[in-house]
Amino acid sequence: MRRSAAAALAAVLLLPLSACANDAAQSTHGAVAPAGRQVDGPKVKIMVGGLDKVIYLPAMLTQQLGFFAEAGVNVELMSEPAGVNATTALLAGDVQGAVGFYDHTIDLQAKGKNVQSVVQFSQAPGEVEIVSTKQADAVRSGADFKGRKLGVTSLGSSTDFLTKYLAVKNGTAVSEFSPIAVGAGQTFVAALQQGSIDAGMTTDPTVANVLDKGLGKILYDMRTPEGSRQALGGLYPSSSLYMNTDWVEKNKDTTQKLANAFVKTLKWMSTHSPEEIAAKMPADYAQGGAGQYAAAIKATLPMFTTDGVMPADGPKTVLAVLAAFHPDVKGKEGTIDLSRTYTTEFVGKAAG
């Protein structure tokens, strides 16, 4: 009984911590999204680096539209506050797929792990570097990152990667500023509000929330292909479904079903308004109100592909960004085989 009581107490104490991981109920640590209509087909677990983030919207939208069921696959969506945590779950074998940034596939290959993007959701990061309103006059570019506390979702995440690149590109060494893990949603907003960070990288709907409250101003906007080219020198394929290469080879039929479902969603998104898309999503994702949520989707929509295909020159841009600062990639660009970091086999068939 003492052990049971202790376990119960521990569970209660942990609840507030997990509840702060993200600002939507479905996005708390390890939370599972509704499985939708069950079908007679394979079961797949997919970990998403924040289910409520607009950059990963196709994951939940596919389930809400019933496209997984139509494709004949039972998908269980799970959520972690950062893409790097989704990668960890994938490598541990806890899930069969991860929805996160494509750049992790290059990072992992440099570390001897074979992971590939199977469906490429986007051609731009969808990320925004926001500077605190109080620091807006002092921080005007990556050159002003020196001595600053910069918020990222977590260390080793794609927001961490992009922040370091923007610093190095503008003459600031990665040792000259402090990356601070602040998560997303309300934890990011609180960090900015309390002065725990001077600036930080985040996505919608957090961006819309920060701007609405007057807490920050946009420094770098990478929600569009144009914004990606300006900040990073080219298209930067980001959010994607990536999976272990060995698993894909052994489960081609299941992988094809997943690709069919996601490509159908991407096409659906390209023919529907932000308001129509927002209406299909869980109600608690629109914490700033329906109007603000639809506006956040509208601002981010340009980043998405319509067919799930990797942009031709995108991988080279991502490799160049990582090679600028990443210790596992810098100086080893010649050893990275980009053709092994993604495949168009399944989206090609889905589009056909």
Score class of each variant (00 low, 15 high):
Lys250Asn: 09
Pro237Phe: 10
Pro205Tyr: 10
Thr88His: 04
Leu232Asn: 01
Asn114Leu: 12
Asp103Thr: 14
Phe145Met: 06
Asp253Gly: 06
Gln63Lys: 10
Gln38His: 11
Ala35Met: 04
Gly348Glu: 14
Glu127Val: 00
Ala7Pro: 03
Gly83Thr: 06
Ala31Arg: 12
Val174Glu: 10
Asp337Leu: 09
Phe161Ile: 01
Ala208His: 09
Val128Ala: 10
Val347Ser: 03
Glu275Gly: 00
Ala25Ile: 11
Ile218Asp: 12
Pro179Ile: 08
Gly216Phe: 11
Ser238Ala: 15
Arg223Ala: 02
Val73Lys: 05
Gly156Met: 12
Val263Cys: 10
Val318Arg: 02
Pro34Gly: 06
Gly227Arg: 02
Asp313His: 08
Lys45Gln: 14
Gly66Ser: 09
Gln193Ala: 13
Arg37Cys: 00
Met78Trp: 03
His272Asp: 08
Pro237Trp: 13
Val44Leu: 11
Val139Asp: 06
Val263Trp: 02
Val48Met: 02
Ala6Cys: 00
Pro237Ala: 13
Pro315Thr: 06
Pro58Cys: 00
Arg140Val: 10
Ala323Lys: 10
Glu129Ser: 09
Ser238Gln: 13
Lys250Cys: 00
Val54His: 02
Thr133Phe: 03
Ile197Pro: 04
Ser175Tyr: 04
Leu266Gly: 08
Ala259Pro: 07
Ser339His: 11
Lys330His: 08
Gly200Asp: 09
Val347Arg: 06
Gln193Phe: 00
Leu215Gly: 00
Glu345Met: 10
Glu70Asn: 14
Met303Asp: 07
Asp204Val: 03
